[in-house]
């Protein structure tokens, strides 16, 4: 650790809590990729890490560097804005691609069947 000794306790605790919260959220999201049953359910999982998970980590980084350099460091806002704008676009295009592929292959009944089919295994 190259951390200065005079780093205040409250900031360290706050940053630690935000770090643990954010990373456990994104771990949960990635775990959802394994646990959920079909593609349309799995698309929802990474959103956890991309919204609140990334938000917590960016906030932690913002607090850490602002305290460390004793001046406001806010360039993490850029990543936050970028992720907020781009994640929906990626997921939307991906879902449309999946729907398109399912339709063209004729197993579109998944769209209607999916409400009941998830109880049985993958």
């Amino acid at each position: 650790m190259t951390l200065a000794e005079e780093f205040p306790t409250w900031a360290a605790l706050l940053v630690s809590m935000l770090l643990l919260l954010g990373t456990s959220l994104s771990l949960t999201g990635s775990l959802g990729l394994l646990r959920l049953r079909n593609f349309y359910q799995r698309v929802h999982a990474p959103t956890l890490g991309a919204t609140l998970g990334a938000g917590c980590l960016l906030f932690a980084s913002m607090i850490f560097f602002s305290v460390l350099q004793t001046r406001p460091i806010v360039h993490e806002v850029l990543i936050a804005v970028f992720v907020t704008v781009t994640t929906p676009i990626t997921l939307m295009v991906l879902v449309r691609a999946a729907v398109h592929r399912d339709r063209s292959e004729g197993n579109l009944d998944e769209l209607d069947r999916s409400k009941t089919s998830n109880q049985s295994g993958r």
């Binding site: 999201g29 349309y40 698309v43 929802h44 959103t47 956890l48 991309a50 919204t51 907020t84 704008v85 994640t87 929906p88 997921l91 939307m92 879902v95 449309r96 729907v99």
Partner: peptide
């Protein structure tokens, strides 16, 4: 609206 719906986990804009 698309951004809001997709950014909220659990709902997803399809078309």
């Amino acid at each position: 609206l698309a951004c809001i719906i997709t950014a909220t986990p659990g709902t997803l804009w399809v078309q």
